[in-house]
Design a protein around this nucleic acid. Structure first.
Lengths: 122, 122
DNA sequence: TACGTGTACTATTATACATAGTACACTGAA
DNA sequence: TTCAGTGTACTATGTATAATAGTACACGTA
């Protein structure tokens, strides 16, 4: 969250992705408390409303849980429901199509995919 | 290109993805001539400028080739350069992270990935 | 009570998207 | 040369989203 524009993702989208990465990599584990909207806003140099927007989206996707009056916490990593798969799959397939159109091979994509999951084991 | 908003992708982005799909699936092969900006605009019910924006992006990514005064053609599918990999990989990894955070397993993502490449063989 | 929490609301500014219309430079064929 | 077709460039307008600022509310805990 430093430069004027990242050209691809909005601020709140970048924050959403960053928190997802930390959860996936085990940096944040279920039950961990996230900084408050105001504290996170100071930490990442954003407006509290922008952070709230990111939190709201993460909650809608089941990544975090909001306990009114207490704060927000990392949710338990449950298996994906059919609805969640239906939400995530188009974006995944679009990324695959773009990569394939650019000339990336299946073997290479498999390597990228496995690398992402090996990170989580560490 | 039918409804008011697809909620995720802009019109020109959807057109870019659609043409990539057709190239990846073999519906359009290298050397094929794409409809002109004006004809495609009529076909997909969009403004010629919006189609031109999609064509421009496809050309920048090496998917199509513009021959001034003649038209646009599907380019030869070459191996991905280091720059192209660097452009495509972040989007792929972001999709993987979101899927993993939603609870999608590695096996399932591998299946989705393989399915996309099996389509191209048909 | 007092405090911290997420949330809701209005308002403003800036950017991107999509449209419309016009014009230009280029190529190939009549 | 002339003409049609091509991609491209430009200005302009209306809309939608993003990000900001500021204020206020309902909730749960110490």
């Amino acid at each position: 969250m430093d430069d004027p524009r990242y050209k691809t993702l909005a601020y709140y989208e970048r924050l959403v992705l960053q928190i997802k990465r930390e959860v996936v990599q085990g940096v944040r584990v279920p039950g961990d408390k996230l900084p408050s909207v105001r504290d996170m806003a100071k930490a990442v140099q954003l407006n509290p409303n922008t952070v709230a927007k990111a939190y709201k989206q993460l909650e809608a996707q089941g990544v975090i849980e909001v306990q009114p009056g207490r704060g927000t916490f990392i949710g338990a990593q449950t298996a994906a429901t059919a609805e969640e798969k239906q939400r995530v799959r188009p974006a995944f397939e679009a990324a695959v199509v773009s990569a394939k159109a650019a000339g990336v091979t299946l073997n290479e994509l498999q390597a990228w995919l496995n690398a992402q999951f090996e990170e989580g084991q560490a």
